[in-house]
Nucleic acid binder design. Sequence first.
DNA 1: CTCTTAATAATTGTCGACAATATAGTGATG
DNA 2: CATCACTATATTGTCGACAATTATTAAGAG
Lengths: 222, 222
Amino acid sequence: MPNTAQPAITSADKTFYDLRSDIVDGSIGAGSKLSEADLASRYNVSRAVVREAINRLEACRIVDRKPNVGARVVTLTPEGLIELYKVREALEGMAAREAAINMSDDEIADLNALLNTHFETVQGEQRYYQEAGDVDFHYRVIMGSKNQTLISMLTEGIYHLVRMYRVQLGMAGPRVTTAFDEHKHIVQAISNRDPELAEMLMRRHITYSRNNIERKLAQEKQ
Amino acid sequence: MPNTAQPAITSADKTFYDLRSDIVDGSIGAGSKLSEADLASRYNVSRAVVREAINRLEACRIVDRKPNVGARVVTLTPEGLIELYKVREALEGMAAREAAINMSDDEIADLNALLNTHFETVQGEQRYYQEAGDVDFHYRVIMGSKNQTLISMLTEGIYHLVRMYRVQLGMAGPRVTTAFDEHKHIVQAISNRDPELAEMLMRRHITYSRNNIERKLAQEKQ
DNA sequence: CTCTTAATAATTGTCGACAATATAGTGATG
DNA sequence: CATCACTATATTGTCGACAATTATTAAGAG
């Protein structure tokens, strides 16, 4: 029998994923109290299962929990989002560097193909991909680093947080105008097996995003 | 009454800390099965409490859990330790850079004082501090970054993992010969408010540690 | 003797109930 | 009227029991 490798989804897993989705996409707003009893009846599971899910969300820093008081969806400050982007810059810069070293030729070819698909989308519609394409690109670079520690930090931690912050601060997806070119250059550096350049371009790419956010936040303050 | 701000330690917290200590310092070895029932009777708490502790350890990547099978202390490959050091390099490099920007003058003065204390220790005994001093130095730089996301990633995640790996792979503390000078130069860069240099020196410092480890691992293979 | 299969035992996942703690409300008192 | 103390309520923390799944052992066939 071929090893189909069932993940063996447990009820707590599912509740965790569901709850995370509801929070990240804004169905459960910032600062909301997460009552264990309420959630238990909402998701049709026991309180213990909800507790486990909340514990995991706390580990991802998506909720904040106080002993004997309860858990709340984190209230996000603009400064917090900036902090997050700085960490992202350091980690994804490293990911790009390692990807330039460790990605296989096939994987790089796939990445180029992905970018070409995106290019056609850009031609057709005015704007570059909204969100999915951007996530897809970054995701592949991260995986290309082949560093498991780095991969799980980014894909299980930071990314959901970034998405949540963006939704709750009312920011649209990534910048659409210049992002495509930046992606293209990063892929070129990776294709040329130039780790230093890949890192630098990725850092710059994320810095631009951060500046973009800072600008928007500054506008709102007025 | 002055706000003494009790953290309100819960039973699950304590069990988590105890268990983590026992694993990190090697009392519970690599690959050990963590039976919920056993641990419950050992720590005199219910299985639910142990479960919560194990869940948190899983979030820290200290244990590996498979649904319906159980949790084991992670078995650590030398490659895993190298991976960890690379992430550390990226994150602590960033910490040093941000510390050079965000530490207060007083905090920098304290850091210098700490280093002087260490210097006298070096004079007295032959070797530089074993472990505590090294941790203390890095800890202050990390806190100096003032970036909460970064701080919790390093102090709640990576540091315990590094310690565990070192213990289980039978490595002593940090290199004793040259580490002190490296620390001194990093503090100088921070004192001079030179973020770029501080980052570069910290990265190099950690790279040296990694090379040191790689060398030892290569020796063992023979 | 080895491999497959079925029954058994052990462990984890889930649940509802009780205990401990914090919050809200009420009333008394200065 | 404000403040404090106390009570009542609601929520979380902890526990033991049951259900579901996996690992182990035993039995039988080839």
